[in-house]
Design a protein around this nucleic acid. Structure first.
Lengths: 194, 194
DNA sequence: CCGTTTGCCTAAAAGAGTTAGGCAGATGCA
DNA sequence: TGCATCTGCCTAACTCTTTTAGGCAAACGG
């Protein structure tokens, strides 16, 4: 029988395309096998399980996003960097909704350690170099930025802000303005009541 | 044969418990049927599909959260209200991770309209009464709050902030301080560069 | 008390994941 | 080049979940 030239990487790439086209929850060994015109069981020579396929898609997405962020951050600082950083994630999620969803997959500790996760953390922290934040506030701010961006994107993609008055682009810009203002003027612990 | 006394509501409630115990992705008609010691096909007298079960769990969770938020918001204003509001979501997610996950389910338009979603939106807006924000900034702020809380909780539950230095409770408090400060001093559109 | 409704049943099919074992094309070594 | 091994894809079989069709008996309404 002719060999199809399968590889874990090729399977992951096909899975990523399928995720973007049909949704991450439609990513299945059967669907991928169909795409290569191959029997499902054949995939087990390259993947240990359906879970591995999903994990590989997640890792692929994390790498791609990290690469884009790195490129976007080069030569930028302050609010310029903040905006570029945030836009990379939002744009990526719009271009590759399935991959973005995959990237939210909970990875086990060792897989996470080997992922591009560290690069993301590092680059998020790099954003803050343009602002004057000492530890532990820097960590708090890193976590807050991650939360806002991830939360916004997932709500926007999930239709949470559906068809209401100010469009979402407007909110996105104003939110970045607000975050920039906040980072430039990060409040001291336990601020006065008023 | 003895009747088990099944109801869509009872099934949803059992599904919610199962979700909290084993994860929302483990919620399956088979598992719920097992829990009632009933054959799977019998569930179809009460539910049109597995999807309906999931949707009902989501609606249940949204209701429960809305009730808790309403109770927490009574008699509070300003930062006090903001904190109570945020804590309700975070505590709910910790107590009922499966239900919280269910609440993130994408609902179709009519189901969403009939859900407690409107109450959530309304109460989020109520938080801002303690701050001086006119439209459209109010909407931007509502969306931002939703994003931060949802994003933070999902990252925290997904292990995104795992075992790093300042504990997550500390970040949560400081983030609320920061949001309070931000809302009290919401920047005008397009702020100066520095 | 009887007829209808309805709740749970069995049976069956389809789709997904997974494992075991086989065959032939590709690869490697003399 | 020739042969042995390896490896990639196959068939077969089982499990689990979802869903539909049709049956039987308990509950219910007049």
């Amino acid at each position: 029988m002719a060999r199809a030239g399968l590889t874990a990487e090729r399977l992951a790439r096909a899975g990523a395309e399928l995720a973007d086209e049909a949704g991450f929850d439609q990513v299945t060994l059967s669907a991928v096998a169909r795409r290569f015109d191959v029997k499902v069981a054949s995939l087990y020579s390259h993947l240990a399980s359906s879970q591995e396929l999903k994990t590989r898609i997640a890792l692929l997405a994390l790498e791609e996003m990290a690469d884009r962020v790195a490129a976007a951050l080069a030569g930028r600082a302050g609010k310029d960097a903040l905006t570029a950083f945030a836009d990379v994630y939002r744009d990526y999620a719009r271009e590759h909704p399935g991959r973005y969803a995959a990237a939210q997959l909970r990875l086990d500790a060792e897989t996470a350690a080997a992922s591009a996760g560290a690069r993301h953390a590092q680059m998020t922290r790099a954003i803050l170099r343009g602002y004057d934040l000492a530890e532990p506030d820097q960590t708090h701010a890193v976590r807050m930025l991650g939360s806002v961006f991830h939360g916004y994107i997932s709500l926007e993609m999930g239709g949470g802000f559906s068809h209401s008055a100010p469009d979402t682009q407007e909110t996105w810009s104003r939110m970045l303005d607000a975050l920039d203002a906040l980072l430039r003027n990060w409040p001291a612990a336990d601020p006065p009541a008023s």
